[in-house]
Computed example of a mutant assay.
Amino acid sequence: MNEQLNSKIVHLKTGKKEFQLPYTNRGVGRTLENGLRACVDWVEATFIFVSPTQLISDVLLLNPSNFFPDTGANGYRQCLRNGSIAIFFDGREDMGVHLEMKGRGCREYESYNKRSWKQLFEIMLSNQASFSRLDIAVDDFKGFFTIKGMVRKIKSKELVSKFKKARNVEDIEIKTGEVRGVTLYFGSNKSDIQIRMYDKLSERTDNNYNVPPEITFWNRTEIQSRNKKAQALAVTLANEEDGEITIGKTVCGILRHYLRFTVKGNDSNRRRWKTAPFWEKFLNGVDELPLTTIIEAPTIEEKEEWLSKQVSSTLALVHEAYGGDMKQIERFVKQGIERLKPKDYDMINRFKAQKKTSLVGETKEASNDLLS
């Protein structure tokens, strides 16, 4: 597998206009011409015979000095954290060391370009990792279906499923009554398999993420696997081979097994109704997907958090040693300004633009409150 991280711009045709979607892909020539993308979106695993330092340096290939102490959780008294990558330890003897990488943590790990997911899962399994959760997400930028359309299908009994129930949750803006996002759940959150479908674009924009204006549609289908299912999925990914096995085949198999949207027929047995063309087309696209590595640009807020956790005490030490003279701190800042690159200024400009937009919104809201 080619270990070079190749950045590309993929041109997608939505039927309305062409947009550009930045993405990266390890060792796979296939692009996103069908408007779909698959990625790892959550990893949790426990190690009994690996120390926290070994997990960081030998398994993840990261620098332990970049991890700072944080609050423990879930029975672990201590934690080492680097951004959204967390290592929990110091629990009961049988609890071992626990690795947690949620969605943001997965993107951060990819940005270090240390191991491919295949390589990471291989080394984790060789160290007897016990996976408790592993999520795969499929992003749809083309619009194979809408979440509201899926809800209508379910209410019309046009779904054959292994699940007994589906749950539809709407995020409603109280002030306007506008539905800002819809999430469709199949299976319980604690079951070995849960499938979620939701409007990722609304989620991103509502949480002030910088989404390129060219992206006008973004649905996400997530498969959350736990325990034995997570372990089996990790083994599948570890055994993935270019051109032969793709994550798409696994995801497609899971979706086909649990969900089949249909076209209403006359037969009293709904299982004999034909599969809906949109669902078949979506699954055929998913079936061909390789595992994609996504590099998301860091934010000013993340830089601030790192500065607070990693550098603030050192700055305070220098500040106090020089009798509170800020000139020493200013000298560091000036040196840093000289080293800023175009990508750094891009991050600065995006942050300022977001702050300006937020300030305008807060000012208008305050004015309306005064007049109401």
Results as ranks from 00 to 15, higher is better:
302 E>Y: 10
278 F>Y: 00
305 E>I: 15
284 N>A: 13
311 V>P: 10
280 E>L: 10
280 E>W: 04
276 A>K: 09
271 R>G: 00
285 G>L: 06
287 D>T: 05
286 V>F: 02
284 N>L: 08
305 E>M: 15
301 E>S: 08
307 L>R: 07
293 T>A: 10
274 K>T: 02
279 W>G: 06
272 R>Y: 11
278 F>M: 02
309 K>C: 13
297 A>C: 10
300 I>R: 05
312 S>G: 07
279 W>Q: 04
275 T>L: 05
309 K>T: 14
287 D>I: 03
281 K>V: 01
287 D>N: 09
284 N>V: 08
311 V>L: 15
310 Q>V: 15
307 L>C: 11
277 P>T: 11
305 E>P: 05
280 E>P: 06
277 P>W: 12
308 S>P: 03
310 Q>D: 14
309 K>I: 08
299 T>D: 07
272 R>G: 12
281 K>W: 01
286 V>K: 02
294 I>L: 12
282 F>R: 09
311 V>W: 11
306 W>I: 15
278 F>G: 01
308 S>N: 11
312 S>P: 12
295 I>Q: 07
293 T>R: 08
304 E>F: 14
281 K>H: 12
292 T>S: 13
297 A>I: 01
308 S>M: 08
275 T>W: 05
287 D>C: 02
274 K>H: 04
282 F>V: 01
290 P>A: 01
291 L>V: 01
310 Q>G: 10
308 S>R: 13
285 G>A: 06
274 K>L: 03
299 T>M: 03
296 E>H: 02
291 L>G: 06
272 R>N: 14
300 I>T: 12
297 A>K: 15
312 S>I: 14
281 K>Q: 12
297 A>V: 02
277 P>E: 05
283 L>P: 05
286 V>E: 06
288 E>Q: 13
306 W>D: 13
276 A>S: 05
301 E>M: 09
282 F>D: 03
301 E>Y: 07
274 K>V: 07
287 D>P: 01
273 W>G: 00
273 W>I: 05
274 K>C: 07
307 L>E: 06
310 Q>A: 15
290 P>Y: 08
281 K>M: 00
271 R>L: 01
287 D>Y: 10
276 A>C: 00
285 G>S: 11
311 V>Y: 14
287 D>G: 01
279 W>V: 04
311 V>H: 14
312 S>Y: 13
306 W>G: 03
289 L>M: 11
311 V>F: 14
305 E>H: 12
305 E>K: 15
277 P>M: 12
310 Q>M: 15
302 E>G: 12
303 K>S: 14
306 W>R: 14
296 E>P: 00
271 R>Q: 07
302 E>H: 09
275 T>V: 01
296 E>T: 08
299 T>S: 09
302 E>A: 09
312 S>C: 13
307 L>N: 12
276 A>N: 04
300 I>K: 05
298 P>L: 06
279 W>L: 03
291 L>T: 03
311 V>I: 15
285 G>F: 03
286 V>T: 08
295 I>T: 03
